[in-house]
Design a binder for these strands. Structure first.
Lengths: 190, 190
DNA sequence: GAGCAATGATACATAAATGTCTCATACGAT
DNA sequence: ATCGTATGAGACATTTATGTATCATTGCTC
């Protein structure tokens, strides 16, 4: 659980809490603050010392998720590649994060700053869709909002299907790209 | 709010409650039982008389949704038509129900009987996917589970996009079918 | 070893939603 | 007019999560 967010050499209590919360809430999004403390091997009082309220913790997790997603996508994407190639790489980068952050999909984040960052992520996807249209990979008559929604949902679906074991993690990104660009019909792939 | 579920000629308190709950929970899924009572123009005690617990009410709404969906789909589908035609009709039938039942998507239904019925609906979609593959509309190498998940998500996405006004209700079903079978790429439609 | 910071345990104080119960009343059917 | 049912209002009891405050203990630093 070491990351750029924790420059310290040893795992701190904070990290233990974050890890426990992610694991726990992934299985049970309604898990209580006390349960998080117990799973983190930490007193509930200490938990409150690190994250004053439940929402605080949730917000921090969302921030970490956004952070990590941005990093993963930035590392995976080659700006000079074609837009459809970038799309594929984006799926490849993001889908592996699902087993840790998919619970955030249904979580209700109140914090404005965080939701604004999320919206900005979607905006960037919108830009990518624009490029997809420009290079002819996506038809111009399809509303951009619809395409963005599809990409978002494809990520979520991939997370789900991989988590439930119905689809192999290795196949998910390819399936997602294929679904979006060519559909699941049987015409030959380019 | 008159339906096969309420043979009585006049709207009953029960109907008022169901209608209010749907409207209210569509806007705010966390709305309290008291709020539902207030919006239904009914005392909280009376609400409890009609639906003992909050979960009871939620379950009844889910049952109604399943019922109505089944009816709508059955009425729309022509069993002798092609599978892809049936898919399109299914989208057309189901998407208009979104403004009333989309909140159920995120609701947690505990009732076993109801979740079993929902699963059976998904199974029927699985059967349809089988036919789509048989008639060559869907590639055989795509996991059926993935296709079913996509269909489910397409319905949900369509609900969202229509609700937010980003996509016209009239276009949604076509977009959904097109997305699934041909993708959003720009090759000409058959 | 003294001192300091973090921790665990525990008690306390709310706060909010839920479900139950009672009672007076209004309404409808007969 | 009367009886019976459904209702609204309100009081209660319970449950559950949450956030705060206290205090003794542990562990680490200097």
């Amino acid at each position: 659980m070491r990351s750029a967010l924790n420059p310290s050499p040893r795992p701190t209590a904070r990290d233990a809490i974050i890890g426990a919360a992610i694991r726990l809430w992934s299985r049970n999004p309604g898990a209580t603050f006390s349960e998080v403390a117990r799973h983190a091997g930490v007193g509930r009082a200490s938990l409150h010392r690190h994250f004053r309220t439940r929402d605080d913790l949730l917000t921090v997790l969302a921030e970490i998720c956004i952070e990590e997603t941005n990093e993963a996508v930035a590392a995976a994407i080659d700006q000079s590649a074609s837009a459809s190639r970038q799309l594929q790489r984006m799926f490849e980068a993001v889908i592996p994060l699902g087993d840790r952050y998919s619970f955030l999909y249904r979580a209700e984040i109140g914090d404005e700053h965080t939701t604004a960052r999320y919206r900005r992520q979607l905006d960037r996807v919108g830009t990518l869709v624009g490029e997809l249209k420009a290079e002819g990979a996506v038809a111009a008559d399809v509303p951009t909002a619809w395409v963005v929604a599809q990409i978002d949902q494809l990520i979520w679906t991939a997370w789900n299907e991989v988590a439930s074991g119905r689809v192999a993690a290795a196949d998910a990104a390819n399936l997602a790209t294929r679904t979006l660009l060519h559909g699941l019909g049987k015409e030959e792939q380019p």
